[in-house]
Design a protein around this nucleic acid. Structure first.
Length: 1197
RNA sequence: GCGCGAUUAGCUCAGUGGUAGAGCACUUCCUUGACGUGGAAGGGGUCAGAAGUUCAACUCUUCUAUCGCGCACCA
């Protein structure tokens, strides 16, 4: 006996983890070397790069366990499995964390060291310095981080990097505790050179495709973070706030009839009407401080109709306004610098407020849209009332510089005092005076000292009669990270267009995305609709941020000529622009490129940083080496001539034909093994008189494949090409130049399908323009495969691992990350980045709340593992693995779940122990290699096969929870509870038991990697690690024999029945019961019955009528219970209950069967089922009645 | 407000158009050999509510309620 009595994970987990890491189990190459796979089928999972900040939480570990389990499973099934790890630089978030650390004084000593002349002045002992002095300048502690960012960005970055490197290590260590096996030899940090290269490449390609532009745009500006936020990234929260909702009048300022199209007399009448009925317009707002930014008043036509009392004029006025023949302007003399225009719009809700809406394009999205629609031509530039610091701008006169809240109070007060605010509709004059409370009247200065709420309360008391709802509650957007207010502002930002057609593909990103989404499988499937819906309504993506941590854009400006740093989109590059009275070619002013510009000039780089998601959306490409910097061979495409094609070469040759009508291409690829036919097809084609290449090919197609639908005369021959290769010439990119367009990206799967469809022979098919190159890829891959001394797997991963298989992700980042990856990968490669998206459950705490750092209700995986084990935590989590559901796993719930699986682990361990023990006790039996399988062994084998079946089925839908249940139930309910007990009576099956159990260890390895690895070594005696073992899916089936008359299931039922009878009669569990049977089969299990049922069976010719009879499927056992019955009266009551219950069931079935509708309409099988149910129910009833009889006849004993 | 998901035993969750399931917890009992991190037998549910479709509804449809998530938002 080498195994301990119980499994102690702590003794093993740490060392196993080290062994795995040392053995490089994450590296697919290792598994390949060991022959676990042949390298042909790949399985790739890209790890969603976690943010650097903070320790690993439950959500991370959940993802990791899932990815690891899937990886292990696929390795076992002989796949070349790559699980690619990485870390995200988390732009804004990390910047926030570093700022906090600076605030706390974490970096004080480094800062002091690096900046000579800087002093920290500490006012109080034991506290961080609150004032910093530098060269006579005084900086407050709270401003230190922004000061550093602004004046010493390099130092700020140095501080950040020092933490980043530390956190990366910590994170890796934590991940290893889980038993993670990603390939750490390949990891990527999103600021690594490889990622930077991809970002630059992407940016330039977008720009060259006319997808990037810079413009005035309404963005969600976080006052706290001083940056634009994404409205889909969860960066914005909504909070209900209470503010005053004030109504006020705009006064008529001007009436114009532009174009003089209205007769003078009519104009006069109309003007008079307007002056009489529209001298003021009432609007309402919670944001009176934005009045300075107003450009218009929008009124619903119905409302205007009502206001103009004379109906004969109202429609005329509306028509004139709408056709721009009448302009009416308003103004509040005390506030507005500019007059605002009256416009009519059905978009205004006529039932809300006064039905008139003030239009402030600089501060509101709907207003902005209305401005764009109606006013952009008239008012190309609109005023901003609020600046980026959240204060009123210079255009606000006396109010400029005030905070929003201060200004709001002041303006409300001024509006009221200037008589711009209407009275409430029915002022309660009678009781008004007496109800007025006494309150202290404050001066303006005193008022200002109060906080915002108090000020409002005061005004509410002071001005009860005005039309102001002082307690109006509404939703306000809040910055998720800093909890400061979000101001919708116009900001100069960079955008990636989803609308512009990309020059290279002829499609816009929205289209690419929609195509991609259509091809991806989503678990659960409803996410396909969500993604589609999202893309259908998508707007351009604001990709720039005003932070310093992240990717800089590869954008340069020539300050000598372009001091204003004007940005140009691709279409403008060839044009000349006039700047400062001079004409310049745009190309001289501005450059998008990776390296520093080489042309003379004072070039400076754009300072804005790319949104973190910009690099994240390129994740599949950057990880898998899309830029392909390390390609060992150079590949080029040449036009084929008689000189450069050689019959014995391994060149791939293809012909391309263009159909201008459909803009499709026909490509015909000839793989290497048919080079002779290639030569024939391309060059030696026997053309008929007057026939060109194209016509020749089509004639052959017609002859060979019966394709007749295309008119060859209309096609254009693009050319014959061959792919040539040379030694690595240090080329940076793999590319094909074809018709002077550069294409990228070979792909493995196309290669496979190509060969499949073409059987290694010539293949011809039509492809869309955008798919042209993707369809040529097989030819490359073929070529690369054939290179001497170069293995496919030495090539950049993207050659053979793309598209990847699963992307596992939490639903929170579905739109912002997953959908974008689909869009952009599709755009770059023509293919989706991953075949399946698996939405993992959200891990909730005990009370059903989402786990979060701020609530502190998270499950700490490291702690959980140290209390239980990694395997337990993994099983507990995977047991809840059903895509897109929630899972409660916190506190006691988590503990209970982990206990369950700790016990499971122990059970497995003890089964192994038992087998070892049996082998020691029965050395002769255990050594016998092949013994005929007994019924019981066949029975357990069948159970195992159905376990395997459901395993394979469930893994396809990622419902791993079922697999965990199935593994648990097989091992415990079947193997341990019955088969192990059986083995005690039949040691001859022990060698089979070992084999089957060994197979179970392998099968369950992805779910209990540590323990199975231990057992593999200590119990199975494997030479190598279990991780490197391939799972033989045919093993179990090869042993299976067509089972007929396997009675073991019945034996189990009989024993269960005996056990419950024991319980029923409250018979001493250890007490032996004598019994007789007429079945010889049962007698074969004499020992088994003795062991499990404590029943001593003898064969008898007649069933013992005095005994208690149990009958199942022709087997009978009569138990002699007379000596054991303790309280027959109680049992009679219980049994009667059962009889009642069965009678109820019988009557239900009877009713159903008596229903003519049922007999008529139900399926035959169902009716048969019902009948057999009825019979078995009746049989049960018979048994129970026998029992009752038996009990009654003995009740007086 | 719109959309999505959930609602099944005390708890955590599976499940299915044709007699309600698991684990934990609970009750009673069992301890000298694989395992007390174990074994046996039990109790416990009008499957959130209502209506509809159906021979038959926990399952399908609609509505309602509650919870959660996502999106948007009203001056």
């Amino acid at each position: 006996m080498s195994l301990n009595t119980s499994y102690q994970p702590k003794e093993y987990e740490t060392s196993i983890q080290e062994i795995w890491q040392k053995a490089g189990v994450g590296k697919p190459e290792k598994h390949y070397q060991k022959g676990q796979n042949d390298g042909k089928t790949t399985h790739t999972i890209l790890m969603p790069p976690p943010n650097l900040t903070g320790p690993m939480h439950a959500g991370h570990s959940y993802q990791h366990y899932l990815m690891d389990t899937l990886s292990r499973y696929n390795r076992q099934r002989g796949k070349w499995n790559l699980w690619y790890p990485g870390v995200d630089h988390a732009g804004i978030q990390l910047e926030g964390v570093i700022s906090k650390l600076i605030l706390k004084g974490e970096f004080d000593s480094i800062i002091q060291e690096k900046l000579t002349g800087l002093d920290f002045i500490c006012k109080e002992h034991d506290k961080v310095a609150s004032i910093i002095e530098f060269d006579g300048e005084t900086i407050l502690r709270e401003d230190l981080h922004t000061w550093l960012k602004k004046n010493h960005p390099d130092l700020w970055l140095e501080l950040a990097w020092s933490k980043v490197n530390l956190w990366r290590d910590n994170q890796k260590q934590q991940a290893q505790v889980l038993g993670d096996t990603p390939d750490y030899s390949r990891q990527l940090f999103t600021l690594d050179p490889k990622a930077v290269e991809m970002v630059n490449l992407a940016y330039i390609k977008y720009w060259e495709d006319n997808l990037i532009y810079k413009g005035a745009y309404l963005v969600n500006w976080s006052v706290g973070l001083q940056t634009a936020l994404s409205d889909v990234a969860g960066e914005i929260e909504y909070e209900t706030k209470v503010d005053p909702f004030i109504s006020f009048y705009y006064d008529l300022e001007e009436i114009n009839f532009p174009g003089d199209t209205v007769p003078e007399s009519t104009a006069q009448i109309l003007a008079q009407t307007i002056q009489e009925t529209l001298s003021t317009i009432e609007v309402s707002t919670v944001r009176p401080e934005t009045i300075f930014g107003d450009v218009a008043i929008a009124v619903h036509p119905k409302i205007l109709e009502k206001l103009i009392s004379e109906k004969k004029f109202s429609q005329q006025i509306i028509d004139l306004i709408e056709s721009s023949k009448l302009d009416i302007y308003y103004k509040i003399a005390t506030l507005n610098k500019f007059k605002v225009k009256l416009i009519i719009s059905g978009e205004v809700d006529p039932d809300f407020g006064s039905g008139a809406l003030k239009i402030t394009p600089a501060s509101d999205i709907t207003d902005y849209n209305i401005w764009k629609k109606y006013l952009q031509n008239d008012i190309p530039v609109f005023p901003h009332s609020i600046d980026r610091s959240g204060r009123l701008s210079l255009s606000c006169g006396d109010y400029s510089g005030l905070s929003v809240q201060t200004a709001r109070i002041k303006i409300i007060k001024d509006l009221i005092e200037n008589g711009q605010v209407p009275f409430t509709i029915e002022p309660d004059l009678e009781n008004g005076e007496s109800e007025l409370k006494e309150f202290e009247v404050l001066t303006d200065q005193e008022l200002e000292k109060l906080d915002y709420k108090k000020q409002i309360e005061y005004l509410a008391q002071l001005y009860p009669e005005y039309k102001v709802d002082w307690n109006y509650s509404h939703n306000v957007s809040i910055c998720e990270r800093t909890k400061t207010v979000i101001e919708p502002l116009i900001s100069e930002e960079f955008f990636l267009s989803f609308e512009n057609k990309a020059i290279s593909t002829g499609k816009n990103l929205q289209q690419h995305g929609l195509e991609g989404v259509g091809e991806v499988n989503f678990y659960t499937p409803d996410f396909k609709d969500r993604a589609t819906n999202f893309l259908e309504n998508i707007h351009d993506w604001c990709i720039s941020r005003d932070v310093i941590w992240g990717h800089k854009m590869p954008v340069w400006y020539n300050l000598d000529l372009n001091s204003g740093k004007l940005f140009f989109d691709f279409n403008q590059m060839e044009s000349e622009v006039e700047i400062e009275g001079q004409n310049h070619l745009v190309a001289n002013l501005f450059k998008v490129q990776v390296d520093k510009p080489t042309q003379p000039g004072n070039w400076v780089r754009e300072e804005k940083i790319l949104d973190t998601w910009f690099s994240s959306s390129l994740w599949p490409l950057s990880t898998l080496n899309y830029p392909a910097t390390q390609l060992p061979v150079h590949i080029d495409v040449q036009e084929v001539t008689t000189e450069n094609i050689q019959p014995d070469s391994k060149d791939c040759v293809f012909v391309i034909i263009h159909n201008p009508q459909t803009d499709q291409f026909l490509i015909q690829v000839n793989p290497q093994d048919s080079i002779h036919s290639t030569k024939y097809h391309l060059l030696g084609r026997k053309l008929k008189a007057g026939e060109n290449q194209v016509a020749g090919i089509f004639r052959e197609l017609e002859e060979e494949a019966g394709i007749t639908s295309i008119d060859p005369e209309k096609l254009k021959f693009v050319g014959n090409y061959k792919i040539i290769r040379t030694q690595n010439k240090n080329n940076k990119e793999l590319n094909i130049e074809l018709n002077s367009q550069i294409f990228y990206l070979p792909n493995q799967d196309y290669f496979d399908s190509w060969l499949d469809s073409g059987n290694g022979k010539q293949t011809t098919k039509w492809v869309e323009r955008s798919d042209l190159i993707a369809n040529l890829i097989p030819a490359f891959t073929d070529l690369i495969e054939s290179l001497d001394g170069i293995e496919k797997h030495d090539l950049p991963e993207i050659f053979y691992t793309y598209p990847t298989q699963e992307l596992t992700t939490a639903k929170e980042i579905f739109y912002v990350w997953v959908v974008r990856m689909i869009v952009l990968s599709k755009y770059f490669t023509g293919q989706i980045p991953f075949e399946s998206v698996v939405i993992t459950p959200t891990v909730l705490d005990e009370t059903g709340k989402k786990m979060s750092k701020s609530l502190g209700n998270g499950l700490d995986p490291v702690e959980a593992i140290s209390n239980y084990s990694s395997d337990s935590l993994r099983l507990a989590m995977m047991a809840g693995m059903y895509p897109n559901r929630n899972m409660r796993l916190g506190g006691d719930i988590a503990n209970r779940a982990m206990e369950k699986y700790r016990n499971f682990g122990n059970k497995i361990w003890n089964v192994a122990r038992f087998i070892e023990l049996m082998e020691e006790q029965n050395p002769a039996d255990s050594e016998v290699e092949s013994k005929e399988l007994s019924d019981a062994s066949k029975w357990i084998l069948d159970k195992f096969i159905s376990l395997e079946d459901s395993f394979e089925k469930e893994v396809l839908s990622y419902e791993l929870g079922h697999i965990v249940d199935d593994l648990y139930n097989f091992l415990w309910d079947y193997f341990a509870n019955w088969y192990v007990e059986y083995l005690k009576t039949e040691p001859s099956q022990i060698s089979f038991a070992r084999k089957l159990f060994t197979q179970f260890i392998k099968l369950s390895h992805p779910f209990l990697p540590y323990e199975t690895e231990v057992l593999w070594k200590e119990f199975v005696g494997g030479n190598d690690l279990l991780v490197f073992e391939r799972y033989d899916v045919n093993w179990s089936r090869s042993l299976q024999t067509p089972s007929s008359n396997n009675d073991f299931e019945n034996i189990v039922s009989l024993l269960q029945n005996i056990r419950s009878t024991r319980g029923l009669f409250a018979i001493d569990p250890a007490g032996k019961i004598k019994a007789t049977t007429t079945s010889k089969k049962i007698l074969e299990y004499q020992q088994f019955f003795h062991l499990i049922g404590k029943v001593e069976i003898k064969l008898s010719d007649n069933s013992n009528s005095a005994g208690y009879l149990i009958k199942i499927e022709g087997h009978d056992i009569s138990l002699d219970l007379l000596d054991y019955i303790q309280d027959p009266a109680l049992e009679i009551i219980k049994t009667n209950k059962q009889v009642d219950n069965i009678n109820k069931q019988i009557s239900i079935i009877d009713k159903t069967l008596a229903n003519p509708q049922f007999i008529q309409k139900a399926e035959k099988e169902v009716i048969e089922q019902k009948n057999s149910d009825l019979e078995s129910r009746k049989a049960d009833l018979g048994n129970l009645n026998l029992k009752l009889q038996f009990l009654k006849s003995n009740s007086k004993v």
